[in-house]
Design a protein around this nucleic acid. Structure first.
Length: 693
DNA sequence: ATAGGGTTAG
C-alpha cells in the first residue's frame, strides 16, 4: 500500500476554486458536518469518513484534524487524506502533521515518511510527528537519525520532541545515547517536566541500569501514577521482583491511585515470588479501589492464583469479569493447563469465542508441561491441519514434544522448517532444538548445533548440553563442559544438580568437592535439589559422614532428600542407619514412596532381617498405598533365598500379583540347588521353561 | 495541534 496515498492525491482532478462555492454548498456543508459528527458519536468512523469523502467540497480544518486523530483504518485514512488534498492543495502545516500522526498510529510508517518528505514547509510539530512515528513503530535508529537531521537544520527541539527521542532510546537500548539526550533535557531546561523525568527512569531501566533509573526516580518530587508504573515495571523486568513489590506498597503509602497495569505488574511480581499472601493483599486492594471485574487486573489475578496453585480462586475471578476479552480467556485456559487440569483447559479452550497464537500455545504448553505427549502431538497436528498461525513459541513447544516422544525424525523435520523460515536465531527455539537432540540421544547433532549457536548461547544452552552428556554417560565431557561454560555464562542451581549427579555416578570425589566449594564460595543458595545431589555424591563416594552432615543441616527435608540419604546409607551397607532413618522419616510425617522402600528392603537384606522385611513389604500396600514394583519383589526373593527361608519363599513367589521374571526364577533355582529344595526347584525350572518357550 | 507507562503463552 506504500505510495497509495501519494498517488491518490494526484489522481484527483484540479480542485474547484473555493471562491466559486455557492451558498447552497455552505448550507449543505453545515448539514453534512452534523451528520459526520453524529457518526463520530456513534463510533462509526468509516461512515463519517464516507460521508466526507463523497462530498464535493471542503470542510473546516478542525473537522479533518479531529478525524485524523480518530482514524484507525487504512481505508478511512486514505479517503480522508485524499479529500483534504483534493480541495486544499496546500493545507496548513498542522493538518499535515495530524495526517502524519494518523499514519503513524495506524502503523503505516512508509506513508507517514512520504507525507513528511513531500512537505514544502515544516514546523517543529512535523518533526515531532515523524520522530514519534518512527520511535513507536520500532525504527529507533531512524528516529534518532531524524532527530539529528532536525537539529542540523536548526529546528529547536521542545519537550515533546525529547519525549519521543527518549522513546527511541528505549528502542535502541543505547546507554551512551540515552545519557546524551539526558544532557539535552538539562541543557534546554526541561528538567522539571514529570513526563520527561519519567521517560528518563524508563530509558535507564530499559537499558538495564536500575541504579541510575532509581536515582532519577528518587529525584522526582511528585512522581505520578505513570512514574510509579514505570519503576515497578522495570524492576520486574530486570528480575528484581522483590523491589517491584516493595515499590508497589510504597506507592500506596504516598496515596497514589494505581493504574490497572500497575496492579498487574505487582501481581506479576507476586507470581514470580509465589507470594500468595501479598497477591491476595493486592487482590483486596484492587477490590477496594473498585477494580473488580476489570479485564486487565483480572487476567493478572488469574495468573497469580494459578501460579500459586489456587485454580479455584482463579476461576472465581474469571466468572466475575464484566466483559471477557481474549486475554482473560487465554489466562484462564493457561491457569488450568499449568496446574495439571488439561481436560478443563481444553473444554474452556473449545468454548473460546476467538483464539490467537498465544491461546493455542497456552493449551499446547499445558500438554507438554504435564508430559501428555500424545495429546500434544494430536494438538500440533490439529494446528497444522487447520493452518493455524505458529510462532517461535509454538516451534519451541513442538520441539519439546519431539524430545518427549524421542522422535528424532519429527525433530529433524522441525529443524528443517526452522531453518527454512530463518527462526533459528531465537534463543528459545535454539535451546529447544539443542534439548531435542540431546534427549533423542543424537549428541553429535547437539554438539554441532551448540557450536552453531555460539553467538547466542545462554545459561540454559550450556545446561542443556551438559545434561545431554550427563544423561548419556559422557561424564568427563559433562565436567569439562562446566569448565568451558564459565567463560561465557554464570552457572545456575540446575547446573550443580546435574554435575553433582555426574560426580556421584563415576565416584569423582575430587571434582565433587570442588563443585561443592564453588557453590559455597559463590554464595549460591543450597536448595533441596542441590542438597540431595550433595548427599548423593558424598555417599556414593563413600564419604558418608559428609553426607550425613549436609543432610542434618537442612532446614526442611522433603521426600527426595530423605531418599537420597537412605539410598546413600544403603550404598555404604549401613543397613541399621537406613532403618533408623526410616523411623525418623515416619516421625516427621513424610510419606515414603517406592524409592524409599527400595532402600528399606535392601537394608533388611544386608542386615538379615527377614521378618522385618516381610512386615515392611506388606506395609507398602496396606499402610502407605505404595504399589510394589519388580525391584521390590526381586529384593524380597533375594532376601528369602539368601537366608534359606523356603516356606516364606514358596508362599511369596506363588502369591505374587505379577508373573515372576527370568532373573527371579534363575535366582530361585540357584537357591534351591544350594539348599537342596528339589520340589520348589523343579517348579521354578518348569516356569522358566514356560516363560522362555 | 503535538509527549511518557502497560495485561496473556515458553
Amino acid at each position: 500500500m506504500s505510495g497509495a496515498s501519494i498517488l491518490n492525491r494526484f489522481i484527483f482532478k484540479v480542485p474547484p476554486n473555493l471562491k466559486t462555492q455557492t451558498h447552497t454548498h455552505q448550507a449543505a456543508s453545515k448539514h453534512l458536518v452534523e451528520t459526520i459528527l453524529n457518526h463520530i458519536k456513534a463510533d462509526s468512523l468509516s461512515k463519517a469518513v464516507s460521508v466526507l469523502f463523497n462530498s464535493p467540497f471542503t470542510f473546516p480544518f478542525s473537522l479533518y484534524a479531529r478525524l485524523f486523530k480518530l482514524c484507525s483504518s487504512n481505508l478511512a485514512l486514505l479517503k480522508l487524506e485524499s479529500h483534504l488534498f483534493t480541495f486544499n492543495p496546500s493545507p496548513p502545516v498542522f493538518l499535515v502533521n495530524r495526517a502524519i500522526e494518523a499514519y503513524g498510529a495506524c502503523g503505516f510508517l512508509n506513508d507517514a515518511k512520504k507525507l513528511f518528505g513531500a512537505m514544502r514547509q515544516r514546523d517543529g510539530g512535523s518533526w515531532n510527528a515523524i520522530i514519534k512515528a518512527c520511535a513507536q513503530l520500532g525504527s529507533g535508529e531512524e528516529a534518532l537519525g531524524l532527530f539529528s537531521d532536525m537539529r542540523l537544520q536548526g529546528v529547536c527541539p521542545n519537550e515533546i520532541t525529547l519525549a519521543s527521542v527518549l522513546g527511541s532510546c528505549g528502542v535502541v537500548l543505547d546507554l551512551f545515547v540515552s545519557r546524551q539526550v539526558h544532557g539535552l533535557v538539562l541543557k534546554y531546561g526541561f528538567y522539571e517536566n514529570v513526563i520527561l523525568r519519567s521517560s528518563l527512569v524508563d530509558v535507564y531501566g530499559k537499558c538495564g541500569d536500575m541504579d541510575e533509573a532509581r536515582r532519577m526516580f528518587d529525584e522526582i518530587d511528585c512522581p505520578n501514577e505513570v512514574t510509579w508504573n514505570v519503576i515497578i515495571r522495570r524492576y520486574l523486568e530486570v528480575g528484581d521482583v522483590h523491589e517491584a513489590v516493595v515499590m508497589f506498597f510504597k506507592m500506596f503509602r504516598v496515596n497514589t491511585r494505581p493504574l490497572s497495569y500497575t496492579l498487574s505488574n505487582a501481581l506479576l511480581a507476586c507470581s514470580g515470588l509465589f507470594a500468595l499472601e501479598e497477591g491476595m493483599q493486592i487482590h483486596g486492594l484492587a477490590a477496594k479501589l473498585s477494580f473488580d471485574g476489570d479485564a486487565v487486573v483480572s487476567s493478572s489475578l488469574i495468573g497469580m492464583y494459578a501460579k500459586c496453585g489456587k485454580v479455584g480462586n482463579a476461576r472465581r475471578i474469571f466468572d466475575q469479569i464484566s466483559s471477557r476479552d481474549l486475554i482473560c480467556w487465554t489466562s484462564m485456559v493457561s491457569a488450568y493447563a499449568m496446574t495439571g487440569g488439561t481436560r478443563e483447559a481444553r473444554e474452556l479452550f473449545n468454548k473460546m469465542p476467538e483464539r490467537n497464537v498465544v491461546s493455542w500455545n497456552a493449551m499446547l504448553a499445558g500438554y507438554t508441561r504435564n508430559l501428555q505427549w500424545e495429546e500434544a502431538l494430536d494438538f500440533v497436528l490439529l494446528m497444522c491441519r487447520t493452518a493455524k498461525p505458529m510462532d517461535s513459541v509454538t516451534l519451541g513447544l513442538v520441539l519439546n514434544v519431539c524430545a518427549g516422544l524421542s522422535d528424532l525424525e519429527l525433530g529433524k523435520q522441525v529443524h528443517g522448517f526452522i531453518y527454512r523460515h530463518g527462526i533459528y536465531s531465537n534463543i528459545f527455539v535454539g535451546n529447544a532444538l539443542l534439548d531435542m537432540y540431546g534427549k533423542c540421544g543424537n549428541l553429535k547433532s547437539a554438539g554441532v548445533w551448540f557450536y552453531q549457536m555460539s553467538q547466542s548461547r545462554d545459561c540454559i544452552s550450556w545446561n542443556a548440553l551438559l545434561t545431554s552428556y550427563a544423561r548419556h554417560q559422557r561424564s568427563e565431557q559433562a565436567i569439562s563442559t562446566f569448565g568451558e561454560m564459565q567463560w561465557q555464562t554464570k552457572p545456575s542451581e540446575f547446573t550443580f544438580g546435574t554435575l553433582l549427579t555426574v560426580c556421584a555416578n563415576i565416584g569423582a570425589i575430587d571434582q565433587g568437592k570442588q563443585i561443592h566449594g564453588f557453590i559455597v564460595r559463590n554464595g549460591y543458595l543450597i536448595d533441596t535439589v542441590i542438597r540431595g545431589a550433595l548427599v548423593c555424591m558424598y555417599s556414593k563416594c563413600h564419604h558418608l559422614l559428609y553426607a550425613l552432615l549436609i543432610f542434618r543441616e537442612a532446614a526442611s527435608r522433603d521426600l527426595i532428600l530423605w531418599n537420597s540419604m537412605i539410598l546413600g546409607c544403603c550404598h555404604n551397607r549401613m543397613g541399621k542407619e537406613v532403618l533408623r532413618l526410616f523411623k525418623f522419616m515416619e516421625e516427621e510425617g513424610v510419606q515414603p514412596d517406592h524409592v524409599t522402600f527400595r532402600g528399606v528392603l535392601r537394608a533388611c537384606l544386608s542386615e538379615g532381617r527377614v521378618k522385618l522385611g516381610m512386615q515392611y513389604f506388606d506395609s507398602m500396600s496396606d499402610k502407605y498405598y505404595v504399589m510394589p514394583q519388580l525391584e521390590h519383589y526381586e529384593c524380597m526373593i533375594e532376601l528369602f533365598c539368601k537366608f534359606g527361608c523356603k516356606k516364606e519363599l514358596k508362599q511369596f513367589i506363588k502369591g505374587m500379583s505379577c508373573e515372576p521374571t527370568n532373573p527371579m526364577l534363575t535366582k530361585v533355582i540357584d537357591a534351591c540347588r544350594e539348599y537342596g529344595w528339589t520340589r520348589l526347584g523343579e517348579w521354578a525350572a518348569e516356569r522358566l521353561k514356560e516363560l522362555n518357550a
